Simulated assay, not measured.
Amino acid sequence: MMCGVWSSTGTVILVLLLITTCGNIPSKADPNDEICLSQLSESLQDPFKNLQNWTKTAFANPCQGFTSFLQGATCNNGRIYKLSLSNLSLKGSISPNISSCTNLQALDLSSNSLSGPIPPDLQYLVNLAVLNLSSNRLSGPLPQQLALCAYLNVIDLRDNRLSGLIPPQLGLLTRLSVFDVSYNKLSGPIPSSLGNRSGNLPRFNASSYEGNKDLYGFPLPPMRSKGLSVLSIVGIGLGSGLVSLVLSFTAVCVWLKISEHKMAAEESKISQFMPDY
């Protein structure tokens, strides 16, 4: 009887040990995440060594289930789920190969000194919900390919050097609740699909677009007509004065000419009545 009890107890303990051991086996790293992290690391400059643990060894196995020991990285079921590298004084550019982190749902590289374009390859981050690249030095166009990231809730690109038109395709993002492109160098009309949204779609006010001097349309206030410069005013004044002077001088000349003819005519009449001596 005792042997049966011990046998049952031993079996239970053995099963528990097996479950615990299997649960601690590290999940196999996704090779795409390794490519993504390696290429992003190469494109970034880290002058203050804030990313010291971003090494090739760590990239080979960046996630232990839901845990990551990489600075700014969050994992979900063995895959990179979120990258938050804001305010780390990072320089360099955003590698197009960041698109290899195909499970990425949030990318925050804000408040750094990143330059160059926003990679159109971000379109392959089909699960991306949050994109925050604000307060950098990014330049070039706003890629229309972002419209393919159908789950985007947040696009924050304020305080950069982006130029060109706002792609109307971004208005197709029905989940978009935050859209901020203020203080860039964007130009042209604000697409109605983003400026005058209808139905249950979230609306964006003027603060989302301010600071782009060549951008216009609702919800921005009407553009004011530019006043005349000081030089223009001076030029108009001088021109008007010169015209007035010429007209006045011409009038005087005409008056003198007419007076001269009148005087000559009067002298001729008087001479006819003078006696000959």
Rank of each mutant, 00 (worst) to 15 (best):
I233Q: 08
F249I: 10
V234E: 14
V154C: 03
F179C: 04
V230R: 15
L245E: 11
L242N: 09
S248N: 10
W255L: 13
F249Q: 07
N205M: 03
S192H: 10
N196I: 05
Y151D: 15
G237E: 08
S225N: 12
S225P: 13
L201P: 03
I233F: 08
W255E: 14
I166V: 09
A147G: 07
V230F: 12
P168I: 05
V243D: 11
V246L: 15
S198Y: 04
G171M: 04
S240F: 14
V181E: 01
L165R: 14
G237L: 02
L215G: 02
G171R: 07
S229I: 06
I236T: 02
R175S: 10
Y216G: 09
A251Y: 01
L162C: 02
S198I: 13
P191C: 10
G239R: 04
A147I: 12
L152Q: 06
I155S: 05
L242S: 13
N205Q: 08
C253Q: 14
P221C: 12
L172Q: 15
D156W: 07
V243C: 14
P143Q: 08
L172T: 15
S163V: 09
F218P: 05
G211S: 14
D214S: 13
L247Q: 02
G241K: 01
I155T: 10
P222D: 06
I155W: 02
L242C: 07
N200W: 07
L152W: 13
E210R: 03
Y151M: 11
P167A: 00
S163L: 03
R175G: 00
L215Q: 11
L172H: 13
L238M: 14
T250H: 13
P189T: 00
A150K: 15
